[in-house]
Amino acid sequence: MSAIVETRGLTREFTVRDGRRRRRLTAVDDLTVRVEPGEAVGYIGANGAGKSTTIKMLTGILVPTSGTVTTCGLRPVKDRRRLARQVGVVFGQRSQLWWDLPVRESFRILAAIHALPAATERARTAELVDRLEMADFLTTPVRQLSLGQRMRAEVAAALLHAPRLVILDEPTIGLDVLSKQRLREFLIAERRTHGTTLLLTTHDMGDVQRLCDRVLIIDHGRLAYDGDLVGLGRATGAERVLVVDLVGPSPDLTGIPAARHLSSEAHGLRQRLSFDAEATTAARVFAAVAERVEVLDFTVEEPDIEDVVRRIYAARR
């Protein structure tokens, strides 16, 4: 089967005016990537690393300076309109909905825009409303929605025409834990039932861990890492952290298998243990802790994505 995204030497330069002088800035530099249908790819990098520029080239908004790109087997700039029927994009920052119209109305317009037959429109809308739990606010104007509700509506709007490729730009930014969780579950289900390919940029390691089986890291427009999460963990040594609140003061919890004691607070009432996600699981570490002391509460902290990126960047220099 042919690739859903394929770039060869993809490069994009901008001319920026720096006071009086003009200078060339390379936003994407010689990017060669192939994404197969059904993959879920996290596209990660610092602000200004070239993520948005890449997405704009994949969708035909920007013309590459050099190199080639095909998306869904089409040339994005030349075949923009045909491509639009196969791609759905969610921009975390800009809305595709009509802010003064009820959500349902926006969906109807989008169905007309994508020329969905009436039966398909009904079925797909019902599916999305059900899976994204939007029934409560279907008749609310978009401008009155909470951020979480709006984001769900945005995702539904981008996926209404059942695109083969879904690109999500910071989909969970600013969302509360529950909303994030819901959105992730939806995307997992969507991928499972429709075989949709996912490409998402994010600052949230949780998104990557729950959703992606492949990670691309971009640094100053260049591809810095392409591989799975296990490899990323190995490459960076980034670890997850188990934080436990204990019932009574206890000595430091050292000697837990595959885990390392980081710190204790308030006479050991709160302790932090880091562990390598590849060597063990949070459940196993927790079980080992619970055998020794009585635990009141616990949380698992994900490695900070900025930290992972920083380590990758540092390793390259």
């Binding site: 639009a84 029927r85 759905g88 921009f91 809305s95 595709q96 825009i113 994508h114």
Partner: peptide
Amino acid sequence: RAGTLDVFYLRPQP
């Protein structure tokens, strides 16, 4: 300025 034009690019009309 608001980037709304990009949204037009994602739709299959001229």
